[in-house]
Simulated scan of single mutants.
Amino acid sequence: MSEDDMAPSTPAERHREIAAVFADRVRGTTDWDVPAPVEGWDARGVVEHLTTWYPAFLAGSGVDFPPQPSAADDPVAAWDGHTAAVQALLDDPAVADAPIDNPHIGSMTLAQATDMIYTTDVFLHTWDLARATGQDDRMDPQVCAGLVEGMAGVEDAMRSSGQYGPRVPVPDDADPQTRLLGFIGRDPSWTPPAG
């Protein structure tokens, strides 16, 4: 196996890779007002979600996050500034390895928390933005399979958080991406409404 075939092994590497794919979809978006697969959201709302909840999470854990442009004004600038700031946190061992306490996830390092809840969220919402805007919406099948397996053990907690819709039934022999989308409450066959 070559180095290029190896999966990213650290939270910083995983974020860099997953955020770069999302950034490509951000730059490929030509209409920010198109509906997204999450009910009530549009393409701009996908970026707004990712660029607002994570800084709020960090603030609740006592970590400062530098102010960034608003996705309401400029989704591209908002994403570029936000993701660079996240990467800077993860690339700084003193920050990444610092313990944080959060009432929802307990005690862990900032890097572990970011990897578990934020980077995963970016990965999932990449499909939302890509599907809404007609871009490549294929997801890494190994990551999809791993997420489905990992989430299955905490499904009750996930559903009770209000962050995930009810499961969407998919065929038993569905590929990992379809299984993941159905598990998190997305309709894998969703397309934007016509007109």
Rank of each mutant, 00 (worst) to 15 (best):
D33H: 15
G28Y: 01
E17D: 12
W127C: 00
S107V: 13
G106D: 01
P35M: 11
T109I: 04
G162W: 12
D64V: 12
A113F: 02
D173W: 06
T178N: 09
V154P: 07
E48D: 15
W127A: 00
V154M: 14
P169W: 11
A113Q: 01
V34D: 03
I105P: 00
P188H: 06
A36Q: 11
P103G: 05
P171V: 09
P75I: 01
G81T: 06
D172W: 00
Q163H: 09
P93F: 11
V95T: 15
M116A: 12
P193G: 12
V154C: 07
A12N: 02
T126H: 01
D115Q: 13
G162R: 11
D101V: 14
V122G: 08
D31A: 14
M139A: 14
V26E: 10
F65A: 03
I18N: 03
V154D: 12
Q163V: 00
P69W: 04
W190M: 01
D42P: 09
E155N: 04
H49G: 06
V76F: 07
A96T: 04
G195H: 12
Q135P: 09
D97T: 11
L90T: 02
F183Q: 09
R16N: 11
P37F: 10
P192Q: 07
C144R: 12
I18A: 05
S9A: 13
E3S: 13
A78I: 06
A174M: 06
P193D: 13
T133K: 07
G40L: 08
A23Q: 15
H104Y: 11
E3A: 13
D80H: 07
Q112N: 10
A174K: 10
V38E: 11
P99M: 04
D140K: 11
N102L: 02
P69M: 07
S2P: 15
Y54F: 15
D140I: 04
E48W: 09
